[in-house]
Amino acid sequence: MATVTLKGNNIETSGTLPKTGSKAPDFSLTNTDLETKTLSDYKGYKLVLNIFPSIDTGTCAASVRQFNQEAGELENTKVLCISRDLPFALSRFCAAEGLDNVVSLSDFKDRNFGKNYGIAFTTGPLEGLLSRSVVVINETGNVIYTEQVQETVNEPNYKAALEALMNA
């Protein structure tokens, strides 16, 4: 279990992020075409998992925009934006914003992603949603960078995640 804050108030998550150097846990997520996607669907790519509570908040939307702009154009890289929002909401947001360098994935169906990555909120007003986090995975499926944002309303450290990605 990890403790983060929401506007200064402690909230807990289901575990901790995978350790750097470990194999990334598999996942089963739903894309905007309602297809199931797993980690193996992205085999051979560098991955940025941009994980957030809901696309309908300013900070979450900002992280999707920022990663679309910065990491979306890197070679052999996929940016996976993951939340428990419905795929329809994720699709609507990306279409309205003109974002096409990110892949939107939802944990609404399987609901195991948050448990497997240790970032499902288990207490507080966001219970059931995913904690704002970034996980970078190299082409061989190993975790090379993680960040669970301590204060949920803050944005992740884009620079550190991108540096890890470029040095992979």
Rank of each mutant, 00 (worst) to 15 (best):
N101R: 13
P125F: 09
D85N: 12
Y145V: 03
T32Y: 11
T32N: 09
L99F: 04
T57V: 07
V48W: 00
A2L: 11
L162R: 05
S28W: 06
R65Y: 09
A160F: 09
F113R: 05
I11N: 07
S106H: 09
N142Y: 11
S28Q: 15
G128S: 06
N116T: 14
N157Q: 01
T77H: 03
L99V: 09
A95V: 15
G58Q: 02
S133H: 02
L126V: 04
V79F: 09
L80M: 10
K46D: 09
N9V: 15
I11G: 07
N142D: 14
K19A: 15
T3R: 14
A24P: 10
S83D: 03
E12N: 15
N76R: 11
Y145H: 13
A71T: 04
P156D: 01
S63A: 02
L130M: 05
K46C: 07
G98K: 07
C94P: 00
T59P: 01
A161D: 01
V102K: 06
I51F: 04
A96I: 00
V143F: 01
L80E: 07
D110W: 10
V64C: 10
T123E: 10
D41W: 08
A96K: 14
V149G: 08
L90Q: 14
G128T: 08
K115A: 13
E155P: 04
F88E: 11
K159A: 12
N10L: 11
P87S: 02
V134S: 06
D110A: 14
F113H: 05
T16S: 14
T59H: 03
S83E: 03
V103N: 08
N154T: 02
N142L: 13
Y145Q: 08
T3Y: 07
L105E: 04
N9T: 13
A89E: 13
S104H: 08
N112P: 08
V48I: 12
E127N: 14
V134G: 10
I51M: 01
E97C: 08
G141S: 04
D85H: 07
Q66V: 13
V149Y: 03
K46I: 03
A164T: 04
E163F: 06
G118I: 01
D107S: 07
L6C: 04
G8A: 09
K7R: 13
V135Q: 06
P87D: 02
V149L: 03
I82H: 08
L105Q: 02
K115F: 13
N138Y: 01
N31Y: 09
T59F: 09
A61K: 06
T3M: 12
I51D: 06
K37P: 12
